[in-house]
Structures are given as structure tokens and as C-alpha cells.
Design a binder for these strands. Structure first.
Lengths: 151, 151
DNA sequence: GTTGAAATTGGGGCACG
DNA sequence: CGTGCCCCAATTTCAAC
């Protein structure tokens, strides 16, 4: 799966505004609208583009507390155990296994501190979890690329 | 800025697929296409919806190394100093001031380990940075809501 | 104030060169 | 890949609740 310069500029244009018209993008990158659509279709088929979504203000939707939770798991826990266990929590936005002391770090959104604490307790009670360590977000300084890679 | 149930369902529909037509969304939530568009316009004007973007596969775009960096800053550093300093790095996807020992944690994307190390060294060389501690992502288990809050 | 229906504008999508 | 065409969706207008 190799993207050339044209593909990257198309993805960049879509990252700025996913509802931009193919003709608009075509003007930016120097292609006709159908040519852009064909490339976008190909990028989707290849899996480079996985979908289109909306960027929201967390607070406006009632998510006013955010934090990172480092998870220390039992020694025989597989990454897939963690993924399956956490996928039942809508408050968990992302989870990754990591290097270092902790086994995984997860990003948690909650309505308020009380909600955050409840989620934390439920997660800490999962059979594969030994202990957790959480840091709360004081202020989100930068939120670029909607949490993904630079595009 | 208050969202009612209809607004939330519209945002949810857009989160699943931002290119869905207003008529489609209208069928889901029980409104006509113009009614949906008016609400989306209002949500954008109010700032609840901040934009529309594309979901991409990091690896497909050449970002194969990801990590979190905890930053320990000089005592007289303001959050805005950190934000300004980090905004010059395209590799920094997000940054937040946090509770705990570290002053901020940032999410970094790099092409490979060598690139990650370079970025880390440059950031560590910033005048407001005292030291850093980074954890590398081994495998991304969950990437929901494109890095934002649950919608 | 918010809705739905009708009318207009403009973009998506396909065939073809 | 671009052009031309058709159709559907987006957008505006307007009347009604």
C-alpha cells in the first residue's frame, strides 16, 4: 500500500474538511473531480482511509473530565484480553500496550470526576488488572489531527 | 450550549459516517433533511461540532511509530509556553497538562524509531523542558471515536 | 422557534474517449 | 485522467404548526 504525493494531498484536504467536494479537492491538487473520487475510493478500498467522522467539542457533549490510565496487568494477560475487556467501556477512547513499567495506557473520557472514579473502579476490578495509575488532564493544550497521525 | 437527544443522535450518526446524507440521518432520527441540516448548522455555529475529518490508518501514511512523552518543565513555565513550543512540531498530535509528577503528556507520531528519537531530542532541547520520559506504543488495541470523546 | 414540502442549485457518480 | 451527462443530494424558500 503506497501513497504518492497526490494521494497525500487529497488525504490532507479531507482531513481539513471531510465534506469538501471532490471538485474543490481537485482544484487544490490539480485533478478533475472524478479523478479525485477514484483515488479516494481506492484509498478507502486499500484501508488507508478508514472512514469519515465529525470533530466535536468534548465539553459540549458533556465529557468534561479526561485522563490517562496506566494499567498493570496479571502476567498471563494477552493484549487481546485487554482489548476485549476494555471494549465494553464506552468511556475508553483508546488503549495501547506500551513499553515501560505499565502494560497498557488507556485514554478515558468521563462526564465528571465522580464518573471518572466509577469507571476507574470498574476497570480496576477487571480480573486481568492488577493495579492502575491515572493522571488527569488539567487542560488540553493541543488537539491536532483529531487524535490520529499528522495528515 | 445545550444539546438535546435529537442533536446527540445526529452527532452520533455523523461520527459513524460524516459523509452520510442529511436525508439518511433524517431517516435515522425522524426528521426531514432540511431539519437535520439546520441542526447541524446550529451545532457548528455553537461550536459543539468543530469540523469534519477523515479517519486514516497511520501505518498507511508512513507513521509507524507512536508514543507518549511525559514532560517535566522548568518551574516558571506556563501552559501556553508549552502549547506554543510544541505547536511547531507536526509530530505532536496532542498535548495536555496533567496531574501527577509530570507537567504535561504529549502524543507523538513518527515515521520510525530514528525519527521518534530525533523529535524527542529536539523537544528535550526546548528551553522550557527539564527532562522527558517516554513510553512507546507496542500495539494500538483500541482506537475509538477517532481520539475524541464518545459520541 | 422549529418543522416539512417544494423549488432551485450544485455535486456525486458513471460511461466514454 | 478528463469531459459530458444524468440523477440525487444539498440548500433555500415558504407556508404551517
Amino acid at each position: 500500500m503506497r501513497l504518492n504525493d497526490l494521494d497525500e494531498r487529497i488525504v490532507h484536504a479531507l482531513a481539513e474538511d471531510a465534506r469538501r467536494s471532490y471538485a474543490d479537492i481537485g482544484n487544490l491538487v490539480g485533478l478533475s473531480a472524478p479523478a479525485v473520487k477514484r483515488r479516494v475510493d481506492r484509498l478507502r478500498a486499500e484501508g488507508a482511509i478508514t472512514g469519515f467522522t465529525v470533530r466535536v467539542d468534548p465539553a459540549a457533549l458533556g465529557w468534561r473530565t479526561e485522563g490517562f490510565v496506566e494499567m498493570y496487568c496479571r502476567s498471563n494477560t494477552s493484549p487481546d484480553d485487554i482489548r476485549r475487556g476494555l471494549s465494553r467501556y464506552p468511556e475508553v477512547a483508546s488503549a495501547s500496550t506500551v513499553t515501560g513499567d505499565a502494560d497498557a495506557v488507556i485514554q478515558v473520557f468521563a462526564a465528571d470526576m465522580r464518573h471518572f472514579e466509577q469507571v476507574l473502579e470498574r476497570i480496576a476490578g477487571e480480573p486481568f488488572v492488577e493495579r492502575t495509575r491515572s493522571v488527569l488532564v488539567l487542560s488540553p493544550l493541543l488537539r491536532r489531527y483529531s487524535g490520529g497521525p499528522p495528515v
